[in-house]
C-alpha cells in the first residue's frame, strides 16, 4: 500500500519528508481526530454539548491528506467532516474544543457552535452550511492573490457527493476554470447525503467524469487507503501549484457515523457495509504500519495515549472557561459602528 507514496517525495510545510514519515504524520492526525471526535460524541451523548456534533469517522485519511500538502500562504476551505485536515493544516485542538463547548475564548465566541469555525486571516476559511458556497469564495481568494502578483500558492476546498449536486458547486467549479486559479476540489463520496443514498443523488457513472466538462483534471482515489490519498492529493496539489488547470479528486469511503451524532444512521444498509470502501481507514493505516513495521506496538500505544492526553487537556481547558454572556454581547453585525441601524 505504501508503494505509491514511496514513489513520490514531496515537500510538506517547506521541508522534505520521506514517504513513511509523511504517512506516520498523517496517521497521527487521523488518530488524534478519531480520539477527539469520539470524545466529542460522548460529551454530546452526556448532554454536555449544546447543538450538533458532526464527525468525520471513516473520512480521516482523505481529510488528513488534504491538510498535509498545504503550506503557509495556501488556502484551506474545509467542510463538515474535515477535522483531520484542519488539524494537519494547523488548527489547534483548543479552538475546536472551545467552539463545541461554547467558550467565549474560542474563535467563534459562542456565536457558532461547531463546524463553521475558521480563521480566514490564517488561510482557513469559515464555511457556511449551504453546500458549494465555499468553492467560489476560495476562487476569489486565489484570484486576488493572482491580482496581487503572488505566485506558488494553492487553494484546496472539500465537499461531499451530496454537495456536488448543488447549483453553487456548478457555478463555483465553472468559475474556477474560467479564472484558471490554482484550486484543488476534493469531493468525498461517503455514499449518503444525510440519509439519501447515491442513486437518489446523481445519475452519472462516476462524479470524476464531470471534471472534463468543467475544464478540470480529474482523479479518483480509494479513501480507505492513506498512502493512495497522500499520493493523489499530493499530486493534485503539486499540479495546481505548477499552474495546471483546477483539480478534482473524488474519494470513495463510507460514512462510519450518522450525519451528526443525533443520527443513528439506521438507513445504512448491511450490504453497503460489506463494500471495500466501507473499511475503516484508521484500522487500514494501523495494519500497514504494523505489517511494514513502520512503528512498533509500543510506539503506537504511546501515540494513542498522547492523543488522548491532548484531547483531555483541550476539553478540560475549554470546560473551565466562561460561557458568553448575552449582556456583554455587542449585538452588532457590521464593523463600522457608526453605521449600525439603531432598531428600537
Amino acid at each position: 500500500m505504501l508503494q505509491a507514496a514511496q514513489r513520490s517525495e514531496k515537500k510538506t510545510k517547506g521541508k522534505k519528508t520521506a514517504p513513511h514519515e509523511r504517512y506516520l504524520e498523517a496517521y497521527r492526525w487521523m488518530l488524534q481526530t478519531r480520539v477527539f471526535e469520539d470524545k466529542l460524541a460522548s460529551l454530546y451523548r452526556g448532554g454536555l454539548i449544546t447543538g450538533g456534533v458532526y464527525v468525520g469517522r471513516g473520512q480521516e485519511a482523505i481529510s488528513a491528506a488534504c491538510g498535509m500538502f498545504l503550506q503557509k500562504g495556501d488556502i484551506f476551505a474545509p467542510l463538515i467532516r474535515d477535522q483531520a485536515g484542519r488539524s494537519a493544516f494547523g488548527e489547534p485542538l483548543i479552538d475546536v474544543a472551545r467552539t463545541y463547548l461554547g467558550s467565549r475564548q474560542g474563535p467563534m465566541r459562542g456565536r457558532d457552535g461547531n463546524i463553521h469555525r475558521g480563521k480566514p486571516g490564517q488561510g482557513q476559511l469559515a464555511m457556511i452550511s449551504h453546500l458549494g458556497a465555499m468553492i467560489s469564495v476560495t476562487v476569489g481568494v486565489l484570484l486576488a492573490k493572482k491580482f496581487k502578483g503572488e505566485t506558488g500558492f494553492v487553494g484546496l476546498t472539500t465537499i461531499g457527493e451530496g454537495g456536488m449536486q448543488s447549483g453553487a458547486t456548478h457555478e463555483g467549479m465553472n468559475i474556477a476554470a474560467v479564472e484558471q486559479v490554482p484550486l484543488v476540489l476534493v469531493a468525498t463520496n461517503n455514499h449518503y447525503a444525510y440519509s439519501t443514498p447515491n442513486d437518489r443523488e446523481f445519475a452519472c457513472t462516476d462524479l470524476v467524469d464531470r471534471a472534463k466538462g468543467y475544464g478540470f483534471e480529474g482523479y479518483t482515489v480509494d479513501g480507505t487507503d492513506l498512502a493512495a490519498c497522500l499520493d493523489v492529493i499530493g499530486g493534485a496539489v503539486k499540479r495546481a501549484r505548477a499552474g495546471r488547470p483546477p483539480q478534482l479528486v473524488v474519494a470513495s469511503v463510507l460514512r462510519l457515523a450518522g450525519h451528526g451524532e443525533h443520527d443513528d444512521a439506521s438507513y445504512i444498509t448491511d450490504e453497503i457495509k460489506r463494500e471495500p470502501f466501507a473499511q475503516d481507514c484508521l484500522k487500514c493505516a494501523e495494519k500497514v504500519i504494523v505489517d511494514l513495521n513502520l512503528a512498533d506496538a509500543e510506539t503506537l500505544k504511546k501515540w494513542r495515549d498522547e492523543a488522548a492526553a491532548e484531547v483531555e487537556n483541550a476539553v478540560a481547558t475549554a470546560q473551565k472557561e466562561a460561557a458568553p454572556e448575552a449582556g456583554e454581547e455587542d449585538w452588532c453585525a457590521i464593523s463600522m459602528r457608526h453605521l449600525v441601524d439603531q432598531i428600537p
Partner: peptide, 16 residues
C-alpha cells in the same frame, strides 16, 4: 453565475 460572482468577490475581499 450570480452566486459564484458574489462568492468570488467575497474571497477577493478577504484578500484585501
Amino acid at each position: 453565475s450570480e452566486d459564484a460572482m458574489v462568492g468570488t468577490a467575497i474571497g477577493a475581499a478577504l484578500q484585501g
